[in-house]
Nucleic acid binder design. Structure first.
Lengths: 210, 210
DNA sequence: GTCTATATTTCGATAGAC
DNA sequence: GTCTATCGAAATATAGAC
């Protein structure tokens, strides 16, 4: 038998390697898509031999699924402030802010999700049918309540949710196009503030809440 | 030499085969991405031997580029009514209608474009830097003119354009997600009308034009 | 122009020494 | 746990008969 080691140390190494691999995988999957990504590229970016990836994640698909789950969880938490808000100005305003911030900080994850959904959600269809469906129904009901209370104009809650997702995630998914139209430069802090303000102003006024 | 044939007939065959291949390619690229698509899959869907694809399109990338160009041209034409309009209600309203209709009729093309841009536009970067950049500058100037004339609220024209692209294309690119949230059914005629109306109502009111 | 057969490359995954 | 070497499958692309 080998010399006994502290379990905590082994676990720490495992967690660190898994995190390195997941971070590299997110980037490669975002840049090349699932089909275009190769285990070799991910291994190179993580600074590990290719065989080690298969030690931590048995298959390419298992690794990919973990990456998709990560961004999904981040988005779910972004809606916390939505629920506690007294009305649409605070609730939807905070939700837009949170989603825009995620588009800036987790653009790669957003792209992986977009790519997965565009291709028919072959790996995370179960999430769409359970967690996302429930989440959407709950938020649609909340929006309808605000409408019934006269706090905003009568709009279709689901189409409003689609608009919120579309506009905020666009800054991540189509970030390259926006950069190109910005003279090839990434958006500055000031420009990100302007983007957030534009989205919030138009939508909140559009639903008669501002 | 072979017996002389009418050029027009040979051209007709060529055009018909090219169209079949392009249509099949658009579908396969949309469903699997560039990396996930295979020439074999495209050939099967087009009902041709794989080698024939290489006869009409030398490489996979050349075929892909043609598919991307198609949807881009369709979108450019959708903005014709934009320019002739006297103000934002007619111009932006018509543009939303046209873009929504394209999302419905050319969802695959929209997905291919989205995938291309998400991956950094490796194939059509030149279009972004020339045609799209000029197009965007022209439309932003028109919107600014409407603002200066007091026909709409002072919003950032570029962020408004991004919002128009994001909201309309979302119904194509994330169509699978929307279908899942619609109980697994595609949107009916009535639901598409409601979607168009929602987008137009919120945005036009959001920019103070309705 | 069409199609079968195949050359060549590259990928995901694994075996086995350390 | 790590890494080198490699297998078997699948991909793009082409050669060459028809």
């Amino acid at each position: 038998m080998s010399a006994p080691e502290r379990i905590s140390k082994r676990d720490a190494t495992r967690r660190e390697n898994e995190a390195r691999i997941l971070s590299a995988a997110e980037k490669v999957f975002a840049e090349a898509g699932f089909g275009g990504a190769t285990m070799q590229l991910i291994a190179d970016m993580a600074g590990l031999p290719k065989a080690n990836l298969h030690y931590y994640f048995a298959t390419k698909e298992e690794l990919y699924r973990k990456v998709v789950q990560q961004i999904f969880e981040i988005w779910l938490h972004a809606a916390d402030s939505f629920d506690k808000a007294p009305g649409p100005v605070e609730g939807i305003g905070a939700y837009i802010d949170a989603k825009m911030e995620i588009s800036r900080r987790h653009a790669d994850g957003s792209k992986v999700w977009a790519s997965e959904v565009m291709h028919g959600a072959p790996v995370i269809q179960d999430y769409l049918e359970t967690t996302l469906r429930d989440w959407t129904a709950g938020r649609a009901a909340l929006i309808q309540k605000w409408i019934d209370e006269g706090k905003m104009a009568p709009v279709d809650p689901r189409h409003l949710l689609y608009m919120l997702w579309a506009t905020t995630q666009h800054y991540a998914d189509f970030g390259h196009q926006i950069e190109t139209l910005n003279g090839g430069r990434t958006l500055s802090d000031t420009q990100w503030r302007a983007a957030k303000a534009s989205v919030k102003t138009i939508i909140l006024r559009g639903i008669g809440a501002a």
